[in-house]
Structures are given as structure tokens and as C-alpha cells.
Write a protein that binds this DNA or RNA. Structure first.
Lengths: 159, 159
DNA sequence: GGTACATAATTGACATGTCAATCATTTGGT
DNA sequence: ACCAAATGATTGACATGTCAATTATGTACC
């Protein structure tokens, strides 16, 4: 050690108490919201948030099918996470996996009828929950601010 | 069905496309930030975010000990989650559990020396990560807005 | 055409989280 | 004092998530 670090320098490296308070508020609130939403989804539809994300992506995909790694990228999951989750969903009959014609390493994930049904039934309750837990809690200005904050964080993270 | 729902009515119940976009942005960004932070903590210190939350609370508690359910309430966990987690932390020597003198149903969680060490070593890297991933991504105005949004959501959720 | 490397996806081991059930103790009402 | 209900905490079963290793196939290049 060649000398002590002056306080000004430390302040540039580490968050202030106030910044830290906001961070904790931010992340804990988002996590609490996430679990509330997951609990409502679970109780109202027998789908988990993960199931819902997968089924939503497949519902919107052309032919209701998608390459496994595209799907992973689209919903932002690690491939191994998706693979495990698809295994569970396949056992429940929500999706099927088929070999890919153009690349025999690849797999295509296909929305199964039971998956489409489950998704359709879950949609309205899920959207209602988003409104009740998130949208209704914020003024229009706060909502817009939330969007800007998320966008800024996302840009920075993807940088 | 007695008739179709007029659009005005649906709009009051379900989020608009734009509101939904903001919701997804909000929750996915927070989750991505959470896992980035967890990954950095893990690689720089051998503590998980859960470990860190428990050790932080204990570090700040008088006598560095706390009743198990107080701890759960403080960090916002279900008791069973805490119980499982404490079991794992106890096996690693980070905390100890002692019987409570005033209530023999209860347990007290005590910060163990190894836990205090691990926490101390993890703190600086963790705070640095918070700054680099969160604080540095936002302007002062955005930071304040993030705080207000979190507060509003929290008030509404706790209502 | 064969070898090295990259890519797609799965697997196994294990950490983490949720839910419902359980157990022991305390508390409140009579 | 007694019993019923509430409380504190743990447990078991199982769903979910991460990491590193593995398998199989494609691609580049000499």
C-alpha cells in the first residue's frame, strides 16, 4: 500500500448511502412484484411465470414453433435453463420437441394444443394482475419514468 | 355469454399494449440486473445474493444476532425459505443457530466469525458492482425517478 | 478429405425457492 | 388448571436455476 485513499476517490467508486437505498428499494420491489405475480398466475392458471414466457413466445411465433436457441435468446434465458424447463413442460404436454430439418443438431419447440389452451386461459388473469399490481400503482408520469429507467439500464447492461 | 364487452370496459380492466411493454421492460430488466449482480457476487466472493442479504442483516443487528422470524420479515423472505437457507449457511459455518431464552419455540440466528469475514470481503466488490451496473447507468434524475417508482409500487403492494 | 474448432442442445450435480404438513410451545378464554 | 387456537420454526417433496461437462453435428481451412 502506498497511501490511504482520499474520500473523494472512494465516493466515485462506491455508491452513497442514498444511492444504495434506492438500489435496494428498486431490486427488492421488483422481486416482490415478480413473486406476487407468479403466485397469482400459479393460483389462477396452473402455469408458472416461466411457462407463461415460453408459451407467449411460441404463441407469437410463425407456425407456433421456434428453434430452441432462438427461443432462449428471445426470452433471455440460458440454454440449459430452457432445456430443463422444456423437459418439464413436455412431460406436462404443453409443448413438443421435434428434430430440426435444416440442422440435425438443432431442435424445434412446438406449441402443443394443451399448451395453447393453458396459455389462452391464463392470459386474461395474468394481464389483469399486471394492471392491478403494476399499472394501477403508478401515475402516468411514474409509468413513463419506469419505462425510461428500464430502457437506460438495459442499454447500459447490453453495452 | 350475454353480449360482447365494449372496448372502453376492457381498457379499464386490462393494460394497454404500451403499458404492457413497460411492464415487461421493467420486470425483465430488474431480473437481468439481479442475475448479473448475483453472478458477480458469486465469482468475486463465494457468497450468493441470499447469503449476502442474511449476513448484511446480521452484521447490522445488535449483538450480531436476531430472532429467525424477525430476520425473515426484515429481508422479506418466507420463513421456510429462510429456514432452508440457514441450514445451508450453517453447514458452511457462516452462521449458528441457538435456542431462544425467552421463547423455547424460537431460534436465534448468530453471525459466526467465518460469516463476518466472508461478508467483510464481499462488501466492497458488491458495492462496486451496484455502482457499475445500476448507479452509473442512470442520470441523477433517473435515479431519483427509480426511487419514486419503487416507493409507489411498494406502498401499493403493502396496502 | 480430414482435422480442428465452433455451435446446438442436453445432462448431471447441486443450489435455491415454494407449498403444505408437521411439531413444539405459547397464549387466551373459561 | 385445561383446552383450543395461534405462533415459531422446521421438514419433505418437488419446481426451478446455475454451472460445467458431454454429445453430436456443422464449418473452415490446409
Amino acid at each position: 500500500m502506498t497511501g490511504s485513499t482520499p474520500p473523494q476517490r472512494r465516493k466515485r467508486q462506491l455508491p452513497t448511502t442514498e444511492e444504495l437505498r434506492i438500489w435496494r428499494d428498486y431490486i427488492e420491489t421488483a422481486e416482490a412484484l415478480g413473486s406476487s405475480l407468479a403466485a397469482r398466475l400459479q393460483s389462477e392458471s396452473s402455469l408458472s411465470r416461466g411457462d407463461y414466457a415460453v408459451l407467449l413466445a411460441l404463441s407469437e411465433a410463425p407456425e407456433r414453433r421456434m428453434r430452441s436457441s432462438e427461443l432462449a435468446a428471445l426470452i433471455g434465458w440460458q440454454r440449459s435453463r430452457l432445456s430443463h424447463h422444456l423437459g418439464r413442460m413436455e412431460r406436462r404436454g404443453l409443448i413438443r420437441r421435434e428434430e430440426c430439418v435444416t440442422d440435425s443438431r438443432g431442435a424445434e419447440v412446438v406449441l402443443a394444443p394443451a399448451g395453447a389452451d393453458a396459455f389462452r386461459e391464463a392470459t386474461i388473469p395474468h394481464l389483469r394482475a399486471v394492471r392491478e399490481l403494476f399499472v394501477d400503482a403508478l401515475t402516468p408520469g411514474e409509468l413513463a419514468a419506469a419505462g425510461e429507467v428500464a430502457a437506460a439500464l438495459r442499454r447500459f447492461l447490453a453495452r
